[in-house]
Computed example of a mutant assay.
Amino acid sequence: MKLAVIQFDVEKGGVEANLAHAESLLHEQGGAEADLVVLPELFATGYFFDSTEQAHALAEPVPDGRTVRRLEAWARETGATFVAGLAERAGSSRRPAHYNSAVVVAPRGWLGTYRKTHLYYEETQHFRPGDTGFPVWTVADRAGRPYRLGVMVCFDWFFPESARALAAGGADVVAHPSNLVLPHCPEAMPIRALENGVFTATANRTGSESNGRETLTFIGRSRICSPRAEVLAEAPRVGDAVLTAEVDPHDARDRQLNAYNHRDDDRRPALYASYASSGVG
Rank of each mutant, 00 (worst) to 15 (best):
T217W: 11
F134P: 01
E246I: 03
E41S: 11
R148W: 04
T132R: 02
V38N: 03
R205C: 09
D254P: 00
H98F: 15
R115P: 00
Y272C: 08
G14R: 02
S92P: 09
P160A: 07
A143S: 15
R255S: 04
A252G: 06
A34N: 07
W157Y: 13
V37Y: 07
A175K: 00
R205F: 00
E230K: 10
S208Q: 10
L25H: 12
L58K: 03
A22Y: 03
L111E: 12
A201G: 07
V83N: 12
S210K: 00
A4Q: 04
V247A: 03
A235G: 09
L71I: 06
H262W: 02
E161A: 15
V247Y: 01
F127C: 03
R66C: 08
T117V: 08
P129C: 07
A276Y: 08
C185N: 14
P63Y: 01
R267V: 12
G150W: 02
S92F: 06
Q7C: 05
R253S: 13
V231H: 06
A233K: 08
E41N: 13
D131P: 00
V231Y: 09
M152T: 10
F43V: 08
S93I: 11
E28T: 11
A276S: 07
G13P: 10
C154R: 01
E161S: 15
E246Q: 10
N196D: 13
P190R: 09
R66P: 12
G133V: 04
E16L: 14
E209G: 02
Q7P: 09
Y260V: 14
L182W: 12
I6K: 06
A233Q: 07
N100C: 15
R142G: 15
T113L: 13
A235F: 02
P249G: 08
G281P: 14
A203M: 01
A171G: 00
D240S: 05
A270W: 10
P129N: 08
R115S: 01
L119D: 09
A171M: 00
G91W: 04
C185Y: 13
I219V: 15
S92T: 14
R228V: 01
T206Y: 03
R115K: 07
A233C: 04
P129W: 05
L271S: 13
L86G: 08
M189K: 04
V139N: 03
S278F: 00
D35G: 06
N100E: 15
V231D: 06
A44R: 01
G150H: 04
A143C: 09
W110C: 06
P63F: 02
A201P: 06
Y47I: 07
V37R: 07
A90T: 07
A188S: 13
S277A: 15
A201Y: 03
Y47T: 06
S222V: 10
Y275K: 09
P236D: 13
N258D: 12
D264S: 13
